[in-house]
Design a protein around this nucleic acid. Structure first.
Lengths: 246, 246
DNA sequence: CAATGGATATCGGGC
DNA sequence: GCCCGATGTCCATTG
């Protein structure tokens, strides 16, 4: 029932018996392959939270790094999952059905997928030599500003990035044309009240940290702000500059 | 090269030609099936941000709701994706390779996956009649408190949930044994400074909203707090009660 | 449509 | 390991 693949370890079985599916999953996990299953299954999760999922047709993916993902036909997020670090433990239930139990510690968690029917099981050895290159991140926005500080305002001089304060690290720390300290918080997209609170914490921490009488300007830089965030900025005496990642 | 499946629309091809793979993807997408591919591909994304990914062996999933996911052998998150709402457009490149382009508007985005080799293509019709039942959420914590308000403190009386303020909706709004207004912010897990800032915004908004002289107590309820959050609570004059979801 | 905040968020960096 | 903040976050809910 196997078909020849690019690698000897690559396997696909259609409508396998539970025993055949078990062997394929066991071998694939042992070989460090990415294993996928189509079939009708139930899913039970217990850990940080707990959940139960009744029988349905789903797609299950086991990664060699310990990730497990259960996908239905809808949504970007898996309906159930475990992050990397799990141990995949395939077995047969008392009823003779395929079961995959993925467990980890700290936190103690387990995900159990029990198949009443397996339509397909595959195991492929994936190697990926390339890293993803993303543009348009907050880091890109920072580089844009450091390359041309006048984008913030005329006379702005960056002095440090990721400068530590008791409240956390400030994105860009600098001073304005008048020599006043400026704290800049960057966001790659439109921001709400949370970002204003974050900036306010940094400004407060720096004012206490520098001198009792120090006046620190807080600047939020983002493509735009929500109305509630705008009111909060005003209330807190903070400023906003509209700027997007390159 | 097809194998018989549970449904006539279910298909799997091993090492298909680009033309065979194209037909399978086209038919699967048209039939509302969940389509998966194993193969060596490049991925290009352009939209809210932009990214490029060089050639590598990956797993690609196309869902009938317009979702596309590209997974490598590592990590829980797909290396590239599009959320539901896309249109999947399979085609052949000038070089005769399989290409899948998934596009949507608002925001204008596209993800292009180009295969130099397809090891497997599958199409399965998934139907999932069951909903996920999760326990241990913030909502469960709220129910626990409403069922026994003394868990917050003796004499606490909940008056409303999701009560609106100019700063947003308060999780639980009530009063203490002395008749003072109490704002409760719930978190299902250990919290950092952001949750304190959120609670502080609600307290401030209510104080302004009620009277000029109104004194409002702010209570953060969570399993635990970080040290920085604890200091911020103290600085803001807010309180903490340790409590976990049931 | 925007806005707001939760999530079993995940992920990476720093300590 | 905890802590903290970014994320192309996704997602449901509400206006």
């Amino acid at each position: 029932m196997t078909a020849s693949g690019r690698r000897s370890t690559d396997v696909t079985l259609r409508n396998p018996s539970a025993e055949e599916a078990l062997s394929t999953v066991e071998d694939g996990v042992a070989a460090g392959a990415l294993v996928t299953l189509f079939g009708r299954c139930t899913v039970d999760y217990d850990g940080r939270a707990a959940s139960q999922l009744g029988p349905g047709d789903r797609h299950v993916m086991l990664k060699p790094d310990g990730t497990i993902l259960v996908h239905t036909d809808e949504g970007q997020k898996p309906v159930n999952w475990q992050p990397p670090g799990c141990t995949h433990e395939p077995s047969l239930t008392d009823a003779g059905d395929l079961r995959v139990r993925s467990v980890r510690s700290s936190p103690d968690e387990e995900l159990v997928v029990t198949f009443e029917r397996v339509d397909q099981v595959s195991a492929f050895d994936l190697t990926d030599g390339h890293d993803l290159a993303v543009e348009g991140t907050e880091e890109d926005l920072r580089q844009r500003i450091l390359a041309d500080p006048s984008l913030v305002e005329d006379g702005f001089t960056p002095l440090a990035t990721e400068r530590e304060t008791p409240a956390g690290a400030v994105d860009i720390y600098g001073e304005d044309a008048a020599g006043r300290t400026v704290v800049v918080e960057l966001k790659r997209r439109r921001v709400g009240p949370d970002a204003v609170g974050q900036l306010d914490r940094y400004v407060g921490a720096l004012e206490r940290s520098l001198h009792a009488d120090a006046s620190v300007r807080g600047l939020l830089i983002a493509p735009s702000v929500t109305q509630r965030a705008e009111r909060l900025l005003e209330k807190k005496g903070l400023e906003f500059v509209a700027l997007s990642p390159p």
